[in-house]
């Protein structure tokens, strides 16, 4: 009978709350579970950071934050579901990344989602990209792999998270620089880094290009090997892995991985502000930083205004890059 009693009590409380009126709806935010949409499969970088954030803010606000994976269409399906097809009441957030924002706008002349469709609350992570192969692959260095691909481009099967994803930008930059016709290689579109890494570990594709954090679990499990990191200098989580530039293959760093939180454009400002300040506090908390360190996630915070400026700059950069490497349409 406890159940029925508590249900009745809950209903009574709810009726009272409903009576208290909508005016306080924003002041006591969140008063019910918040959904964080991850537009990729569980286990990828977007998913990992979303779960860290959900865990931290969920405890802070004593309301569950639910991570919901909605993969497909290179992240567009989930991002649209969060930004365009949900209620702008602050109870649906998007774990927004380059693939669903700047790179999308760079690759499409009429993108299925625009920057104006969202309000950023802040950027949380910035991470370099890495080139990874299966643990027992014959190529010891990135240079070696590049030479093989140069000789026989049609044998390269590589995975990406969508036509506008960081893997594709990075790979095409690489192909352009080593003089390989990208059209000859075989690109497999997956539903996110976790999906792509599983295919790499199972030997179904030869090369996967993802962020440092995304490569972490499979590297640690001994299933894959990182050949190069795309960064101006070596990264602290992978001290033994040389940079692509160091190996004389790719000059410059034009692609990087980042993740932030955004909301539908009509979401009330006080709610977005609340998220912004909560994230700002979170990224200073040693406990949160330790948790991020455990999964090799490089925390690098930008506030809402800085994030927007950063993404706008990226849009210009990726538009230019997409035009040059021939993936803009």
């Amino acid at each position: 009978m406890i159940t029925r009693l508590s249900l009745v009590m809950r209903m009574t409380v709810c009726v009272l709350l409903a009576g208290a009126g909508a005016a306080s709806a924003q002041a006591d935010y969140p008063n019910k579970p918040v959904e964080i949409v991850v537009p990729f499969t569980a286990g990828g970088g977007t998913d990992l950071i979303a779960r860290l954030v959900a865990d931290y803010l969920g405890k802070k606000w004593s309301q569950p934050l639910l991570v919901v994976n909605k993969p497909g269409g290179g992240g567009v399906i989930g991002a649209r579901a969060a930004l365009k097809e949900s209620r702008p009441d602050g109870y649906t957030a998007l774990m927004d990344i380059h693939t669903t924002s700047s790179m999308l706008m760079g690759a499409w002349k009429t993108p299925p989602l625009k920057l104006e469709d969202r309000k950023f609350a802040g950027r949380i992570v910035r991470d370099p990209m890495v080139f990874a192969v299966k643990a027992d692959a014959p190529w010891k260095t990135f240079k070696e792999l590049s030479d093989v691909v140069k000789a026989k481009p049609e044998e390269l099967v590589w995975s990406t998270v969508g036509p506008a994803g960081p893997s594709r930008y990075t790979a095409y930059d690489w192909f352009t620089q080593i003089g390989v016709d990208a059209v000859k290689t075989k690109m497999v579109i997956t539903e996110g880094a976790a999906d792509s890494m599983t295919k790499l570990a199972g030997g179904h594709v030869m090369l996967a290009i993802h962020s440092v954090a995304e490569a972490h679990a499979m590297t640690k499990a001994g299933k894959i090997r990182v050949l190069a990191v795309l960064s101006p200098s070596r990264v602290k989580f992978l001290p033994d892995v040389p940079t692509a530039e160091e190996q004389g293959v790719i000059k410059g760093v034009r692609v990087q991985w980042w993740a932030g939180v955004s909301f539908p454009a009509q979401t009330p400002d006080p709610i977005v502000k609340k998220w912004e300040s909560a994230i700002a506090e979170m990224v200073k908390d040693p406990q949160f930083l330790a948790a991020a360190e455990r999964i090799n996630m490089n925390i690098d915070f930008l506030n809402a205004a800085e994030t927007r400026a950063f993404v706008e700059k990226e849009v210009a950069g990726y538009t230019d890059m997409a035009t040059k490497i021939g993936i803009r349409r």
Binding site: G72, G73, I77, R80, K84, E85, P112, G162, P163, I189
Partner: peptide, 20 residues
């Protein structure tokens, strides 16, 4: 809805609500 590889709208006749 949206296609799985390039997120191209299919059978939506350009009508937004069908994209989901």
């Amino acid at each position: 809805g949206l296609g799985p590889s390039t997120a191209e709208p299919r059978f939506t006749f350009g009508w937004e609500p069908l994209m989901g």
